[in-house]
């Protein structure tokens, strides 16, 4: 861990203060110091190649994370509630429901990129040709739609894990509470609101923490589906950083942007901790 996490991270932070570009790359750690230049460039210098894309990527990452995490948690909870009912083939359904989680991200991206194609893809065939739900064929992989093109597969892949996690919580829940409430005349919605949800809070908190981190660092799905530059509407922080570092050799800038991203996530953890502190101590 020291070898892979600690020392290299320190190295990465050091690099963020270096002028590391096409010409100095071969000198690596001997590249000239540039102080806070990389950070200034990203945040304030409009002529900097990273500046322009940076705020767009920040915004996109917010949007992506919001919808992906929201979809994963709400969807996961909804399906968990569905599966918590006794029914025939329950075990089979529960197991099969987990399979999307097993499909590797790079396969998910290739597959969905293929399904989204506007003229021959199956999604538009269903939405336009077979059911007529939409009059015109949307182009999913361009413009604003491309955000949905990466959010939906991300939810699809992430949801099963949240589902099984919540399902476990639901099953461990004491039945007496529900029964007592039902006798008192509380309907299913009220029981969900006042019994299920509060008891699930710690689980939601854990899911929220890791889902947000995972979504904010998403790379494989946009990169494989939309290419190294997913465009102004779907360029996430990680695709931006990896592109600028590894295709454009702006390693110093890339490292600085990574540090900023890390700081942002630290803020998120702090906020999260404040919000859910009580729930964590309860368990």
């Amino acid at each position: 861990m020291v070898l892979v996490h600690l020392i290299p991270t320190t190295g990465g932070i050091l690099l963020s203060f270096k002028r590391l570009n096409t010409f100095t790359f071969s000198r690596l750690f001997d590249a000239p110091w540039s102080g806070l230049e990389n950070y200034r460039g990203i945040l304030f210098d409009t002529a900097n190649p990273l500046h322009d894309g940076f705020f767009g990527a920040v915004q996109n990452t917010f949007v992506y994370t919001f919808w992906t995490v929201g979809g994963t948690i709400v969807g996961g909870l909804a399906i968990a509630l569905l599966l918590n009912r006794p029914m025939r083939g329950q075990r089979l359904v529960r197991t099969l429901m987990l399979t999307p989680w097993i499909v590797p991200s790079f396969v998910v991206a290739v597959l969905w990129g293929f399904m989204w194609q506007s003229d021959v893809g199956i999604v538009n065939k269903i939405l336009v040709d077979y059911t007529g739900l939409l009059g015109e064929r949307p182009i999913w992989l361009l413009g604003e739609n491309s955000m949905w093109a990466i959010v939906i597969p991300s939810i699809w892949r992430g949801l099963p894990f949240a589902m099984i996690f919540f399902l476990a919580g639901l099953q461990a829940m004491p039945q007496e509470l529900h029964e007592a409430a039902a006798i008192d005349g509380a309907g299913p919605l009220r029981r969900f609101r006042y019994i299920t949800l509060p008891l699930l809070r710690p689980l939601i908190a854990v899911q929220l923490l890791f889902c947000v981190i995972y979504a904010a660092y998403q790379f494989a799905i946009p990169y494989i589906m939309l290419g190294s530059n997913p465009g102004p509407d779907a360029d996430l922080m990680m695709t931006l950083i990896v592109r600028q570092s590894f295709s454009n050799n702006l390693f110093g800038f890339g490292a600085a942007a990574s540090v900023l991203l890390t700081l942002a996530m630290c803020v998120w953890v702090a906020v999260w901790y404040r919000a859910f502190k009580r729930d964590l101590e309860a368990t």
């Binding site: 010409f23 413009g143 509407d233 295709s247 702006l250």
Partner: peptide
């Protein structure tokens, strides 16, 4: 020139944006 690859990437991004907006999605 050594920087061409990067410049090409920059142009590619912009050309892409222009064509996208011509297609009505930017």
């Amino acid at each position: 020139i050594p920087q061409w690859g990067q410049i090409e990437n920059a142009y590619k991004t912009r050309f892409g944006n222009i064509l996208d907006s011509a297609a009505g999605v930017g």
